[in-house]
Design a protein around this nucleic acid. Structure first.
Lengths: 238, 238
DNA sequence: AAAAGCGATATTGTTGACAATATTGTCCTT
DNA sequence: AAGGACAATATTGTCAACAATATCGCTTTT
């Protein structure tokens, strides 16, 4: 029901953590991202502990890790709740992505091996094929992720990779699940990816950074446009 | 012995957390940053728990929070150790700072209130005075921090602020403590701060971003130069 | 003498009970 | 009837004991 949704992605966070709190972290994380636990909902420790068949210790630890990933907010002596992704915080997230992934693209242009660049281009071609077959539906979901992921890893900067892939990554995933009804931009994204990979092949850090930043900025703008009226949560009832 | 070392800084992380694990987090964090617990040293849970007069529960939680701050590494079933700041990872840190603080400066140029900009300039003047009095010693330590801190907060981006001020901030502090014997660049930094504040006053995001990035890039270069031969830890013995 | 296997020890992971704090519902006052 | 004080309940924070795993030192083998 909630496995990490098989990607091409290699570095699975908490990958080889057979410890109970590790497994609980993954399970709880996926439950939150999938919306099984709703945004804003309180995380009741005894109930969740029973649900996951663990004691409160490992569960609490899992919650703390999700706090670090910004999927959960915690107030001392009060408790933890699932974050609610307001438009405001999503836009903030995209500004951070712009900065970090822009730099990642620049570093990738400098450091990525020829071999990895070739694999990246392969990936792009696969996505292009999927896009043509499925009328552009594939791109926005998994394909885009993998592409960005590879570039980030290609930066060779471990800290940068951790920040993006271990922390912010899940926040982005959560947002995408919540807004999956909106789909868009896949052919344009394809073109932008094409330009980006060209810049990396040419070993042009400045161009790669600028293209990545524009790419993310445009995504941000399209989100802003799509959600500025249609708010995320259905606040009809209030 | 290990209070948060009084800054002008307002948003103290874990500030109003009177809980045991909160206090332990702060205490352990400062012990690590000050070097009371050496880089690479193992964090023995029973020993540390006794030392801090708490049980292992809160201590473990503190350790996990420091893992999120990247001050500590943890391997399941093996334990936690204080990070060792190799030159490599410090350079990585500065690349991330360049990206994030650059964007922060741009956002500050857009969003910072006139009042806050005025306060920022005041701060700069105070630092200039200190620098003249103390032959440039002050800048590199606390003054620089406060200045960057204010700009980051001025970005108005909460996520960005959290990432920089709650997480990476302490890593930078730790690095500075370990390299306090090197001092430098204070008058140049002052000039660069002056230019930066001017760009913000002029509401010029692009210029502000570029100046901040150059500022950090130069700091990175000077660190690289200073440490390329002189390694951090005294590996004489081996 | 070096390496591998094995047992003893130490350390981390997990659990359930207890303490402290917050929340809820009820009763009383105005 | 509305608001506040107080008791009852629920929830989080903390602890100490237990289980599982890793580490260390020894013996044994080649």
């Amino acid at each position: 029901m909630s496995k990490p949704s098989a990607h091409i992605i290699s570095t699975a966070p908490q990958g080889d953590d057979r410890t109970l709190s590790g497994q609980t972290t993954v399970a709880l994380r996926e439950a939150i991202i999938n919306g099984d636990i709703a945004p804003g909902e309180k995380l009741n420790e005894p109930k969740l502990a029973e649900q996951f068949k663990v004691s409160r210790g490992p569960l609490r630890e899992a919650i703390r890790r999700l706090v670090a990933m910004r999927l959960v907010r915690h107030i001392p002596n009060v408790g933890a709740t699932v974050v609610t992704l307001e438009l405001q915080s999503i836009l903030e997230l995209y500004d951070v992505r712009e900065a970090l992934e822009g730099k990642a693209a620049a570093l990738a242009a400098e450091n990525m091996s020829e071999h990895d660049i070739a694999k990246l281009r392969e990936l792009l071609e696969v996505h292009r094929q999927h896009s043509e077959d499925n009328a552009g539906e594939y791109m926005q979901t998994d394909g885009d992720f993998d592409f960005h992921y590879q570039i980030i890893k290609g930066s060779g900067n471990q800290l940068l990779t951790d920040q993006l892939c271990d922390e912010l990554y899940h926040l982005i995933r959560m947002f995408r699940v919540q807004t999956s009804r909106f789909k868009s931009r896949s052919d344009r994204a394809l073109i932008e990816h094409e330009q980006l990979i060209y810049a990396i092949e040419q070993r042009d850090p400045q161009l790669a950074e600028m293209l990545m930043r524009k790419h993310i900025t445009r995504a941000k703008a399209s989100i802003k446009h799509a959600l500025s009226n249609t708010e995320l949560d259905n606040t009809d009832s209030i």
